[in-house]
C-alpha cells in the first residue's frame, strides 16, 4: 500500500513538473486598435488672411493609434457630428485618412474651399472618430476635431494673450496691414520667440515705410495705427 502511495505521488510530481514546462503566453496588447486626435483639437480658419487667388487650402490634423502597428494600411473613419453646419464636399472634404502600415500616427488633410457664402458667415465642422473594421474610437475626450470656416477677417483668438504686447490694441485695419506686411496667414497659434521678434521688426519697418510714403495709417475707429 505504501508503495502504491509513493508511486502515485511520484507520478503526480512528474506530471506537475512537465506541466510547468508549458510555454507562457506572451503578454502583448491584444485589445482592439483605437485611434484618437493626437494634438490640437480645434482651430479657426479664415480665408480672409489669404490672398484672393487662394480658393482652396488644407488643415492638417494628426491622429494616433493605441495598439500595435499593422502590416497593412488602415482607414480612419471620420464623420461630421450634428454640430456641423458646413456642407461636406462643398465647404470641406476629408482627405486620405489612413494610418499607413507600420506607423503609429498619420496627418490627415482636410481640404477647405473658399465659397461665396463664407464672406458673411462662419461655419462649423466637427469631425468625430467613428468605429470601422480597422479602429474603434480612442480616448473619449479626444475624438473630435472642430474648426470654424469663414472668409471674414476675424480677430485672432489669441490676440489679447499673444499679439497685444507686440502690436497693441486690435483693429481690422491694423490686422490687415500686419497680414500684408508680414505675409503671415495663421495668427491663431503662439509664435516661437524668433518668429515673434521677426514679425515685430518686419511690421514696424513696414509701418515706418507706409507712414513716410502715405502719411499716418488710420484704422476704422479713426485712430492712427501704431505698435507699442
Amino acid at each position: 500500500m505504501e508503495k502504491i502511495v509513493k508511486k502515485t505521488v511520484l507520478l503526480f510530481l512528474l506530471i506537475l513538473a512537465f506541466a510547468s514546462c508549458t510555454k507562457n503566453k506572451e503578454l502583448l496588447f491584444d485589445e482592439a486598435n483605437l485611434v484618437y486626435v493626437e494634438y490640437q483639437d480645434s482651430t479657426d480658419y479664415t480665408f480672409a488672411t489669404r490672398p484672393a487667388a487662394v480658393v482652396m487650402d488644407s488643415i492638417v490634423v494628426s491622429y494616433r493609434i493605441i495598439g500595435s502597428v499593422s502590416a497593412k494600411d488602415r482607414q480612419i473613419k471620420l464623420v461630421p457630428t450634428a454640430a456641423t453646419t458646413a456642407k461636406a464636399g462643398y465647404h470641406y472634404k476629408v482627405g486620405t485618412a489612413v494610418i499607413k502600415a507600420n506607423e503609429f500616427s498619420s496627418k490627415v488633410p482636410i481640404y477647405v474651399y473658399r465659397r461665396p457664402g463664407l464672406k458673411d458667415s462662419s461655419l462649423v465642422v466637427v469631425l468625430q472618430v467613428a468605429e470601422n473594421e480597422d479602429f474603434k474610437p480612442g480616448f473619449p475626450k479626444r475624438l473630435n476635431y472642430k474648426f470654424t470656416l469663414t472668409d471674414v477677417l476675424k480677430k485672432p483668438s489669441n490676440w489679447e494673450t499673444t499679439w497685444v504686447s507686440y502690436f497693441g490694441s486690435y483693429s481690422e485695419v491694423k490686422f490687415k496691414f500686419l497680414i500684408t506686411a508680414t505675409g503671415k496667414t495663421d495668427w491663431n497659434s503662439s509664435p516661437l520667440p524668433q518668429d515673434s521678434r521677426y514679425l515685430s521688426q518686419k511690421a514696424r519697418n513696414a509701418l515706418l515705410e507706409y507712414n513716410q510714403t502715405y502719411g499716418p495709417l488710420i484704422d476704422e475707429n479713426g485712430q492712427q495705427v501704431f505698435f507699442p
Binding site: 521677426y198 518686419k202 519697418n205
Partner: peptide, 25 residues
C-alpha cells in the same frame, strides 16, 4: 539685424532691420 537662439525649436534666422529708439532707421 539680430538672431535669437536658445534651445527653443524652429529655424532661427536674422531678422529685419532694427529700429532705433526714435522708431526710425
Amino acid at each position: 539685424h539680430s538672431n535669437l537662439v536658445g534651445g527653443f525649436p524652429g529655424v532661427k534666422k536674422w531678422g529685419d532691420v532694427a529700429l532705433n529708439p526714435q522708431g526710425n532707421q
